[in-house]
């Protein structure tokens, strides 16, 4: 379980997050949604210790962010940032292999190599394995980065808008894979999504945010309503139900 308590974060005088207290249950897919500038990426970055905490407390299971050893956390939690920097000259296989670094610290064993192999297969990258990253399209590069996080094999995965650059087939494949990882391997996946349709269709749990505050949280069928779209997103889109599924106007 990830538990966040009394978390505030600001840049100079501008508050970005105000008094966030939140529990993300272990296992399942939790979607973080909200308008641009709501503080979703900041929250994710703070949980993944990419930025130092200013006030408040974050626990990932028994590990306290800010004091626990970074390398212990790297075996428990992984993050895919929104705009990952990229070392262009690496090949796909080399990049994915870095996912195992927290375990082998530079000396990969047979098990590490097998995990890398699996990650490359899962993300359908075999044909691209020896291409260098700067020769790939945005979507292919995104898949390579996802494969690296997958190879890291952590209980918690934080993904900041992973559907950027992915076409509909790759987006659906990724969401189905995340669901399967959550269901069969008990993984906890926290994912920032822009498209509420994806959140409604694939998440077990939705956390909404607006202007640095938490909005309604709960199962998609309980909280995705016309009122939520109006209050949180300030749009008059309607939620339609079709064959037991929810569809939001676009």
């Amino acid at each position: 379980m990830i538990s966040v308590s009394d978390l505030s974060y600001g840049y100079r005088d501008t508050p970005i997050l105000t008094d966030i207290t939140l529990e993300i249950p272990k296992g399942g897919v939790t979607a973080l949604i909200g308008p641009n500038g709501a503080g979703k990426s900041t929250l994710l970055s703070l949980i993944a210790r990419l930025m130092p905490l200013q006030s408040g407390r974050i626990m990932v299971d028994e590990l306290k962010i800010g004091t626990c050893a970074s390398t212990d956390l790297a075996q428990r939690l992984s993050i895919l940032p929104q705009v990952p920097e990229i070392a262009a000259r690496l090949t796909v296989a080399e990049l994915v292999a870095f996912g195992r670094y927290p375990y082998h610290k530079g000396r990969p064993g047979a098990e590490d190599l097998a995990q890398v192999e699996t990650a490359i297969e899962v993300f359908d990258l075999q044909a691209l394995a020896h291409r260098s990253l700067d020769t790939l399209s945005g979507g292919q590069r995104q898949r390579a980065l996802l494969a690296m996080i997958y190879a890291q094999d952590t209980d918690y995965m934080l993904l900041d808008e992973p559907l950027n650059n992915l076409d509909i087939a790759a987006s659906r494949a990724l969401m189905q894979l995340l669901r399967q990882m959550a269901e069969t391997h008990g993984r906890t996946i926290v994912i920032v999504l822009h498209d509420i349709n994806y959140a409604a269709a694939y998440a077990d749990h939705i956390v909404t945010m607006k202007e640095g505050h938490l909005g309604p949280c709960g199962a998609p069928r309980d909280i995705v309503t016309d009122a939520l779209l109006r209050d949180v997103f300030q749009t008059d889109a309607k939620v339609r139900r079709l064959d037991g599924k929810m569809l939001i106007d676009v």
Partner: peptide, 12 residues
């Protein structure tokens, strides 16, 4: 060399 965020993610 992968960058700051990737290095932190991998525990450095």
């Amino acid at each position: 060399a992968l960058g700051r965020e990737a290095a932190i993610n991998l525990g450095l």
